[in-house]
Write a protein that binds this DNA or RNA. Structure first.
Lengths: 197, 197
DNA sequence: GCAGTCGGCTAACATCGTTAGCCAGGGTGG
DNA sequence: CCACCCTGGCTAACGATGTTAGCCGACTGC
């Protein structure tokens, strides 16, 4: 959790996104309004537009922050599970079947720790032009490598993890359901599948 | 696609939810406002509150409609794939590995055909008290039976399908990505998995 | 015939994102 | 040293949102 934020250079801008994040994580998405953000740092709403063109720009900064944190979390798991770091880029060796499960666990843990941020990150079309270059690929990297570079498999696992997380966050599973069982089932299914295809 | 709507009896109420649906599917979620709904049927917004307590009640009617349609679509697939209808309830025989893939395909097709309705149905906590009794179970039934009654497996497959659909609808996969490959991979993985556990 | 409910209406409130336009302060060029 | 202009505040306002209060006409049941 080091710096994590490139485009907003000014101190004020950083103050704004951190106020927005506190509101989001503290009071939910409907609390993050331009007036509330401004109030929290002691200015008035229209002044925010001197630092960001509109609200979605603030949200994009939040999204970039979340993606960077998620990428860090997944990279940490990757380093622990398959300590073959420092290879040539693109090296797809020794997936290790536990790697997928470990990454899925970290993914779920991040989403549950930051539910509203996760929903903000994943619930809408990503404005890729507003993201730091390479961020999206960096976040996807650990999983892609864990499945041996198979893009279809990576997308399927991502879909599974995202779907499970988002259904859990929305309270869609029956109350008290044993979700870890379903996660295990899913990770097991993907681990058992051969890379052919 | 027969009747599909129990609580709103009055003709006006039905008119309201159908106007809401037309707005949702025709112009997207931000178009479905109380004023626009009212305008479409020739009355003023406050009059809507003589028929529904608030906007979320209208949305719940839409959600119930969508869930019923989705349930019908899945039941149709089930009848085609495993024509052993009329068994004792709870009978879990002969899953048929293609059944999961067929159901997943129908699920995806419904979501892509009604993207905004699907997002409305699945993107928020479900107000179960506002749903017709048994609807949720009915929608879940075909998949649960297809995986032989294994709740963990059913949840995992649901998570996979929902995640894939929602990522696709949000345009999160790279443009031009071959999603059918990922779907096949996922369905294959779940089909290969034994029911032990 | 009268009462009451049903279903419209207008006016209004608070909140939202956003814009226009004004102005104080500070740094810089002449 | 003074004029300028840019930065970053501000107030006032617009149009839109969901929702409430209160009014009133018509139709229905007794």
């Amino acid at each position: 959790m080091s710096d994590v934020s490139s485009p907003p250079i000014s101190a004020r801008a950083r103050e704004i996104v951190s106020a927005a994040r506190e509101l989001l994580e503290g009071e939910g998405p409907e609390a993050v309004s331009m007036r509330r953000i401004a109030e929290r740092i002691g200015i008035k709403a229209p002044s925010l537009y001197k630092h960001f063109p509109d609200k979605s720009a603030v949200e994009n900064a939040l999204i970039a922050q979340g993606m960077a944190e998620l990428a860090e979390a997944l990279e940490a798991v990757e380093a622990k599970v398959a300590p073959s770091a420092g290879l040539a880029p693109g090296a797809s060796v020794a997936p290790g079947e536990g790697a997928v499960a470990a990454l899925a666990g970290a993914y779920r843990a991040y989403a549950l720790a930051h539910p509203d941020l996760y929903r903000l990150m994943s619930g809408q079309p990503l404005d890729r032009a507003a993201m730091p270059a390479g961020l999206e690929d960096r976040a996807a990297g650990p999983l892609v490598r864990a499945v041996g570079g198979d893009a279809d498999a990576a997308r399927a696992v991502w879909g599974f993890a995202h779907g499970m997380v988002v259904l859990e966050l929305a309270g869609r599973f029956p109350p008290g359901a044993d979700l870890s069982g379903a996660w295990a089932k899913g990770c097991g299914a993907f681990a058992a599948e051969p890379s052919s295809g």
